[in-house]
Amino acid sequence: MGVRGKETLVASTGTAETTRRDFLYIATGAMGAVGAAAMVWPFISQLQPDASVLAMSSTEVDLGQIQEGQIVTVKWRGKPVFVWNRTAKDIEEARAVQLGQLLDPVARNANLPADAPATDANRAAKDQEKWLVVIGICTHLGCVPIGHMGEYDGWFCPCHGSEYDSAGRVRRGPAPENLAIPPYHFVSDTKISIG
């Protein structure tokens, strides 16, 4: 407003009077702009996950209930998490794959460093390799893939045909990344806590 006022008004030459007036108009206009910007922030910030969502608790899964070969889906932070009790054959297949054959060579395991390679050992549970815990969301556009389907004996995404192997690694596009592995740890031999 102050700035517009300046444009309309100041037609005269650059006297000291005009300079002082210019400064006043610019200062007022700048102040108004700063105020408006500061006012906008709370209205943007309120869209962030709120304190109760951020504090949302972990989910515990009792592994004793899961048969060999079975994939169980549990909910963690509103998302499906697949817990797969893999058979020896599943593990064998996953191990046989060379890193060079993978579309995404990174483990995507929240429990490991970000650059860990996507070997089966880095994908499966630590020291309990029959357990595979992955977030059940296709890394393409967020659909939930179907288990025990597709050429690679892992998951097949019905939306756009991405396929994952028995370590949850993407083997056929369009998905760009392996299925993500959530942070989890073993509470006991037969129980994990996700989150």
Binding site: W41, P42, F43, S45, Q46, Q48, D50, A51, S52, V53
Partner: peptide, 10 residues
Amino acid sequence: MRDVSYGWLI
């Protein structure tokens, strides 16, 4: 009032 970011303000 409690959990939403700046919720109390709005």
